[in-house]
């Protein structure tokens, strides 16, 4: 990933990093309603603005991963930070991960003309494919998050019946809770 990025193209990307990532941030902010986008932009305290800080903390190093020596686990961690929040918000799966693909629109405006001038169109297209790969990875992360939400929901449901069963003593069942859960999970898988 990114390893074969042409030196000339990388120079342009490094040079344009500031404006590109800033525009990317703005685009992600604007995927929220206007009042929210304003807030995400305005509030700088990371604890008063957890969505904003998750974006800010992810996009800069993610761009570095795109143009530098990408480390798969770091890339995934950064994408996780960005997508985990969106996975429980009012986004469809497509609009949750579209923020990665949308980076192409920005890079096209900022970098493509200069790349073409230097005859680096082919290299540029390869770089766009790299963004696509990040987008697909983001979809993996999105699905992992959604699966996690359902696992948490399922565990909640599995716990409930025996906790609510009138005749049973809950703490007695609790002691056997893990076995009980495992048995129920097994039954679910079998049927």
């Amino acid at each position: 990933m990114g390893r074969n990025l042409h030196k000339g193209l990388r120079e342009i990307l490094v040079h344009k990093k500031g404006p590109i990532v800033e525009k990317w941030r703005e685009l992600i902010h604007k995927s929220y309603p206007p009042e929210t986008a304003q807030f995400l932009k305005r509030e700088k305290d990371r604890f008063s603005n957890p969505i904003g800080s998750s974006i800010e903390d992810s996009i800069w190093p993610l761009f570095d991963q795109l143009i530098g020596e990408a480390d798969p686990s770091t890339t995934k961690k950064l994408l996780d930070n960005l997508v985990r929040v969106r996975a429980v918000q009012d986004f469809t799966p497509a609009s949750a991960v579209q923020i990665i693909f949308a980076l192409k629109q920005i890079v096209r405006k900022e970098v493509l003309p200069a790349a073409q001038k230097k005859g680096l169109l082919r290299e540029y297209l390869e770089f766009e494919s790299e963004i696509d790969r990040f987008g697909l990875l983001a979809f993996d992360v999105f699905m992992e998050c959604r699966e996690r939400v359902w696992e948490i929901k399922r565990n909640d449901l599995l716990k409930r019946p025996y906790l609510l069963a009138g005749g049973m003593c809950p703490s007695y069942m609790m002691k056997r809770g893990i076995k009980h859960l495992e048995k129920l999970k097994k039954e679910i898988t079998q049927h």
Binding site: P33, E35, N49, I51, V85, V88, Q89
Partner: peptide, 17 residues
């Protein structure tokens, strides 16, 4: 109060301000 609610901060839904 607008940006002080955990539901707004977590959802980004302005009706949760």
């Amino acid at each position: 109060c607008a940006d002080k609610c955990h539901f707004f901060l977590g959802s980004g839904d302005p009706k949760n301000m």
